[in-house]
Structures are given as C-alpha cells and as structure tokens.
Amino acid sequence: MKIIELKETVTASNDRDAAVLRGELKEKGTLLINLMASPGAGKTTLLERTIRDLKDRHRIAVMEADVDSDVDAVRIEKIGAKAVQAHTDGMCHMDAGMTRRALEALGDEPFDLVVLENVGNLICPAEFDTGAGKCVMLLSVPEGDDKPLKYPLMFSVSDVLIITKTDVAPYFDFDFDACVARAKRLNPNIEIFAVSSKTGEGFEAWENWLNQAVKDWKNEPGKTIKEN
C-alpha cells in the first residue's frame, strides 16, 4: 500500500475543464454569461426584455438549464433568439462538461453573446465553474434584502447583481441600501443594477454594461490557458 497526498479540491477536474472552455470561447469572441438566481426571481423575463432590446446589435443565443421541461426555451425562441434546452437529469447545477454539450447543441453558428440560464438555486451553481466569462445573479425584491447573508458564496462569485421586480417594491420592506452594503461587503467589485423587467425601469444601465462586456470580451487580450 502506498499513500499519495493530493490536497486538491473535489471540483479540480471541473475547474480545469472550465478554464479550457473559457479559453476556447475567448478565441471565438463569444461571451458566455452564467445567469444564476432562485426559482422565480425572473431570469427568463429579464432575458426576454434584454434580447428584444439587443437582438439587432448582437447575435444572441440562450441555453436553458432545468431539471425538466422546455417551457423556458420555448419562451426565448418566441422572441427570436436561438435557444436550446439542457436537462440536468435531476442535478441542481450546470458544470463545465454539461455547458460544453449545451454549446455544441447550439450548432456552428457564431454568437457574440450566449446566456446560460442556470438551474434556479442560490447554492450549488455558485460552486461549479461553467467556463463562463461573466457571472450574473438576480435577486428579486420579494426574496428579501437578507439573501447576501444567507447565500454568501453566490454573491462572492458574481460579477453583477441585478435586483429585479423593483415595480413591486412598495409592497415589500426591501431595504436597497442594506442589500447593496451586504453584497459589497462580500464582493467589493460587484456591479449592482436595480430593474423591473415589467416596466423597463433600470434596463438602460444594465444593457449598457452588457454591451460593454460583449465588446471588451472580443477586444481584451485573453490570458493564456494552460492545460494541466
């Protein structure tokens, strides 16, 4: 018998796959966004409005990840973007391997922006790198301003926090300042937008950020990705 000391995280193989995928997407000039939130936070509704506003500017596709059904992919296709439905077979998150297979299902057509709508869940998706260039999370007003305290990892790994459903804010005691302070404490660099997908409030700032991110992804030189 022989003991081999490894000292690597359980997700090390996924982290390697994710880094390779990110490098390939960088070369193609395709920005992959990993969109994460609780079930019902408004991921698909936010995407519908965003795609409607930006589809003439960028070539956009969406990968819908769910445990079952294709209702979200059908909604996205209705507004004119290419969509594929990825089933996770009961798993609570997407990993880099599943993301690669979903990207392959989109075909050879070039895209400027691909959004992975991850499984609705604030815990597991945060732990698995999908290979995305940017992570964007949503938090809806009805969920409450205390979520950064309860799900710190999700707020720590996200580049952007979008507070959604601001149109219903008068009916809830959501403290925007407290929420922003809690999120910034976990992640000082997080960009925060407050929007209503119903009225369009706040969309200009979010879409400006997204346009810039798509542009930067194509123009900024990529880091050399080494396979271990």
Binding site: K2, L6, K7, T9
Partner: peptide
C-alpha cells in the same frame, strides 16, 4: 468572516503498489 470550514478537499488516497 468565515476563515475555514467551507472546504471539500481530497487530502490523500491509498493505492495498491
């Protein structure tokens, strides 16, 4: 701040020679 307790690390493996 949590400084430890969130890990999941493969520490070591025992293998047949």
């Amino acid at each position: 701040w949590l400084i430890q307790g969130n890990e999941c690390i493969i520490k070591e493996i025992e293998v047949e020679d």
